[in-house]
Design a protein around this nucleic acid. Sequence first.
DNA 1: CACCCTGTTGCCCGACCGGCAACGGGGCAG
DNA 2: CTGCCCCGTTGCCGGTCGGGCAACAGGGTG
Lengths: 302, 302
Amino acid sequence: MKHLRILTYVAEVARHGAIRRAAERLNITPSALTRQIQDIEYELGTPIFERVAQGMRLNAAGELLVRHIRDQRADLDRVRSQIADLSGVRRGHVALACSQAFVNHVVPDEVEAYRAQFPQVTFTVQVRDHVQAVAALAQFEADLALVLQPPPSADMQVLFSCRQTLCALVRAGHPLAAEAGPVRLRDCLAHPMALPDRSLAIRHHLDDALARRGTPLTPVIESSSLEFLRNLVLREDAVSLQVPSGIPDDPRLRFRPIDARDLAPMTLILGQLRGRTLPVATAKFADRFASSLHQRYGLEAA
Amino acid sequence: MKHLRILTYVAEVARHGAIRRAAERLNITPSALTRQIQDIEYELGTPIFERVAQGMRLNAAGELLVRHIRDQRADLDRVRSQIADLSGVRRGHVALACSQAFVNHVVPDEVEAYRAQFPQVTFTVQVRDHVQAVAALAQFEADLALVLQPPPSADMQVLFSCRQTLCALVRAGHPLAAEAGPVRLRDCLAHPMALPDRSLAIRHHLDDALARRGTPLTPVIESSSLEFLRNLVLREDAVSLQVPSGIPDDPRLRFRPIDARDLAPMTLILGQLRGRTLPVATAKFADRFASSLHQRYGLEAA
DNA sequence: CACCCTGTTGCCCGACCGGCAACGGGGCAG
DNA sequence: CTGCCCCGTTGCCGGTCGGGCAACAGGGTG
């Protein structure tokens, strides 16, 4: 929308901390940009940026204004979506931040199903760890977040949650694949472990449990990529630890849940920014997503 | 603020229901205005006005947009006020809608006290009846409302409330002024009555009470102006009914509370629009006003 | 049918926005 | 200390967009 142009300028300068860099991204010259900023500061009767040698830094007034700008854009999006909705065409955009574990089938399946019905709705899916995902919500970079074990945050409003039991993941033919049903953690640790690294919630969960019991952990392979770990498990008799919803349907892979005595289940959460009214399309998608997760993984936890 | 220009156009056309009238108020020509409206409709991909022979009527999409515009302007006001606040100068504006009863000393005293401390804060005080005052809040035409017995409304959030006992108002020398303390309603009705008309909450309250008891009421004088009624009472031995907070400090006037057996006290309410975050200056004024009312008239009612 | 009101359109001008080039100033390496 | 680089800023100029004027299309009304 045209009238947001100037506000966009402010937001962009704030984001980059420098007029020249912001001007480049906005495809205008620094001179034009500096003048617009000055205009706004004049209208407000106070500077909103602190001029430092390295560029521009928001001051307190600027922080307030930028927050207003973000709110205002989000609200306009919501209104546009509502308007599109009542004209019959379901347009809109959904920005989702999710953990790596869900890029296999959980999110793609859901997006596919939704787009089959409303092809006018577009999506962006960003893979973020559980901390960054919550931050993305607060920054309005994402409308929804689907994550494992997010840090408790007042900003996050839970739309759905359930328990996910960690599973030992091995290739077909691995000794652990001989039996079915729960497996004890110590039986896993007897084999070489290929584990997520500390950027992933799964690893934090495991480390916490082992630290409490004083069991040392010496993974043979560590990676920030679950996909890499799966590919590795296919090639040698290592054991990985993943959540079932993140394991693709591959006949060469086998997985067994870790016995509940050894490892508490993790929490899967679909959430949005607390207090935010989502655009129609986004809200409807969130709704369906929640009930679809409900069907797949059972009741919401308390 | 400059970027709100176009949005103001929409709001003004919506308010007047006609481009030409709106254009006149905006000091531009109808042609310029029609083009701006068309631009917005193009950007939104849908008309926001229904063209009728008599002018322009908002359609559903327009309603949504206009609501957004109102919210957005209110939020900007709040941000500007916050910014002014943190730069040390307490600027801001307070728009108050109040019942006639409070223009004598309640509101002027409070405004004076506040302006003595923060002369940069400006005020508009609109006198509205109890129904219109609540509407003014919802329309963002007022930030605060001070009224008697407002209709219950989900839009209204109570900041302070207390009870006000209706009083018989007479001039000094009137037979009723001979005694002090509560007076029975039937003793008043024995004299010619000079009453507020049905545009005022006091009259509704009285009518309700009398209707329940089947007592007929034949006022000699009716007026929508409390001030007129007081001036009349000064000139002849009539009895008026007013709330004590609306009676000026005039040695020629006497008033005695109506006995509680005859007439329940009325409710005085200071309120704002539910869910709205008021600008700093306004919020602070509301705060002081509430505690000042508290000191004058006692505890909040439940 | 004429008249009045409505919104709308073609044409034109002026103001505003953005581009270009140059300037003042702070941080940093030689 | 000096030259260099990057920072924001300013004077000047051109294109674009907003607004004014006058005329047009259409519905309601006497």
